[in-house]
Amino acid sequence: MAELLAKSPCEGLLPKEVDGLTLSEAKRATMTSLSPYRGQEAVLSDVLKTEHGMALPRPNRSAGKEGARAVWFGQRQVMLIGPDPAVSLADHAALTDQSDAWAVVLLEGEGAEDVLARLVPLDLRREHFKKGHTARSQLQHMMVSITRVGDARFQIMAFRSMAKTLVHELEIAMKGVAARRAS
């Protein structure tokens, strides 16, 4: 029997490169939201540490590294990105598969902060938004999760259905920043 073909959210839209700034789609990864049950945060954190090597991140922070990351994702909500979630996590938290719900893009390069300053009402400059910092906010009119995953590298997540708008907005801002630099 034929297999169903998989399509990534940004297929055909990325990558883009403008004057040293790049926008690319993150490698597909399992994404699972974890919402701890009442009073289970500490235990959940321990289990997460044992099973996936990182404690439950505090608000506005992420933990782990490329391939296995836990990103704070909202009130009482953390997104585990990378590993398939250990079964034991389900004893302490509501688990929801979100692998297909988000378009995940990476914005990289000198001036990435300036690009985001045109779209996001947050201070994302390196001194204030360090590596590992994360925020839920808005990019233009879209709800997003933004995480600094490198010195000049941001992971941006928006609803999958909005991938085209996400790329469009980022590309305009990238071009604007590049044009200013050139002048």
């Binding site: 049950y37 909500q77 929801t96 598969d97 979100q98 692998s99 297909d100 719900a101 988000w102 259905s161």
Partner: peptide
């Protein structure tokens, strides 16, 4: 109440 919600509109 011990309950949590998350949108899965985009997941499916």
């Amino acid at each position: 109440l011990d309950v949590s919600m998350i949108s899965v509109t985009e997941q499916w």
